[in-house]
Structure formats: structure tokens, C-alpha cells
Simulated assay, not measured.
Amino acid sequence: MTLIFAHRGSAGTRPENTMEAFFEAEKAGADGIELDIQLSKDGELVVIHDETVNRTTEGKGYVKDLTFAQLRSLDVIDRFETGKPLSIPALEEVFEWLAQNQLLCNIELKTAKVDYPLIEEKAVSLIRAYHLEERVIFSSFNHYSIIQCYRLAPEVEIAPLYSEVMFMPWVYAKSIRAKAIHPRLLTTAEWIIRAAMNHGVAVRPYTVNKAKDMRRLFKIGCTAIITDFPEMAVQERKAEREKASGQ
């Protein structure tokens, strides 16, 4: 069965990378969540996508230049008008919640533009503290970062993120000890997905937001999809399974 990962939580219906977005993903029936981590000025692992807080909060500045207390005090912009107080979560807050369910968690290390010293070590330490080794996947566009994660914790899965066409990505994945690839959907043909899976490498394309693409990937048995709309994906997966079983 193709698994469904909620991209930055249910980012299509709730403010991204907030606890509210993660709660909604669980409610929708997603199998896992995807989130992004960076380090605050005082070394706290925080969940936010951009290197600055400008787009998603009422504040200004780089994440790396703000303490956790300063980041926490910022109001997250609520374009969905949920009416709930929203803040930037600490990764530990997410882990405390994950300890109460069985969801998987794809952690994207935002290390391609900003150098965050020891971010991999901090993340691995927290994963082990919460015994989440079997439920976490590390991904990043900075492949040195996930290789460092593998060196620190070979028991935690790693998966390179990439946005362009890659020649025989399953060969590359195996060369860095990755069990999966996370390619951009628009640059990944079905035959590449099939070939990678046939070579024992899982494929989780991003960002799959159109129903027709969801159905196509469910039909070929793609390992997983990463989507902003987990509720839609769950419904489409159910419909495709019913269709395949002749109901």
C-alpha cells in the first residue's frame, strides 16, 4: 500500500509546520508527517521551513539569529483562519506528540543554505531519547547532511531530496547507504519510480497535490507520496483500492 506523508503537516488546509497542521494530518488518516528543522540562535531544534521567519510569521529575521524564546513568541500567520493560537514548534514538542501515536516522521534538514553546526548530532540524540529510530526518515537537499546522519545513526533511514532529473537514482541512493529517494514529482517519470523500487529503493515523490497524480501513483504502487492534502490523498487511495478490488 502506498503510504501518505503530510507535507509540513496538512499544509494545504492548516498553517504549515505547526502542531495544528500535524494534528490535522493525523485526523485525516495520514501515515506520516513531513517537517523541516533548523537551529535557533541558542541551539534549539525548531520546526520551520524558510531560513527566515518573514513569510510564515509576523516577525522578521533569520531563524539562526533568534533565540528559541524569541521564535516562540512570534505569531504564525493564519491564512486559514483556524482561530487558534499558533507558534513555531520545537522538534521535541512534535516528538512528545508522536510518542502518543504511530505516525512516521520525515525530517528534512534545512542545511543547504545555512550551516547549522551539530544539527545532525542534536537530531539523532533527540530521536534516540524518544526511541523513534524506526519511525523517522532523514532527508535533505544537502546530501552531506544525511550522510552525516547515517554515520551517527545507521539504524535511522536516510533519503536524498532532489529536484532535477537524476541518472539511475537507485544506484546513487545505494552508494550513500540510502534506502529511499525523495524526488520532485515533476521531474520523475513512472519508469524511474518502477525501476528504483525494482532495485529495492523506496520512492516518495513530492509534492503530490493533484488527484490525478495521486491516482496514478497509487495505481503503480509507489512506496509513498508527500502531499499538502492528506485528506484528499486518503480518499483517493481508498477509491483506488476499491476500484482495484472490483467493489
Rank of each mutant, 00 (worst) to 15 (best):
Y150P: 00
R151V: 02
L152V: 02
A153G: 02
P154L: 06
P154Y: 00
P154C: 09
E155T: 00
E155V: 05
V156Q: 09
E157A: 15
I158R: 09
I158V: 10
A159T: 12
A159D: 10
A159G: 10
P160L: 07
L161K: 07
L161R: 03
Y162I: 00
S163L: 12
E164N: 13
E164G: 01
M166P: 02
M166D: 00
F167S: 04
P169R: 08
W170P: 06
V171N: 04
V171Y: 04
V171H: 07
Y172F: 15
Y172L: 07
Y172A: 11
A173K: 11
A173R: 00
K174M: 10
S175V: 07
S175L: 09
R177W: 10
R177S: 04
R177C: 10
R177T: 05
A178P: 04
K179A: 13
K179M: 03
K179C: 02
K179D: 00
A180T: 00
A180W: 03
I181F: 12
H182N: 15
H182T: 03
P183C: 05
R184P: 03
R184F: 13
R184M: 09
R184K: 14
L185P: 03
L185K: 14
L185S: 08
T187Q: 04
T187P: 00
T188A: 08
T188M: 09
A189Q: 15
A189P: 08
A189E: 10
E190Y: 14
E190M: 10
E190N: 07
E190W: 04
W191V: 06
I192F: 05
I192G: 14
I193Q: 05
I193P: 05
I193S: 01
R194D: 12
R194I: 13
A195Q: 12
A195T: 15
A196P: 00
A196K: 01
M197C: 03
M197S: 02
N198V: 06
N198K: 13
N198F: 09
N198L: 14
N198H: 09
H199W: 05
H199Q: 01
H199I: 00
H199N: 15
V201T: 07
V201I: 15
A202M: 14
A202W: 09
V203F: 13
V203A: 06
R204I: 12
P205E: 11
Y206T: 00
Y206I: 10
T207H: 09
T207Y: 13
T207K: 06
T207E: 03
T207P: 01
V208C: 01
V208Q: 04
K212L: 05
K212H: 14
K212C: 06
K212F: 07
D213P: 05
R216K: 15
L217D: 05
F218W: 06
F218Y: 12
F218E: 00
K219S: 08
I220E: 14
I220S: 14
I220H: 12
G221M: 05
G221Y: 06
G221H: 08
C222P: 05
C222G: 02
T223P: 02
T223D: 09
A224C: 02
A224K: 05
A224H: 01
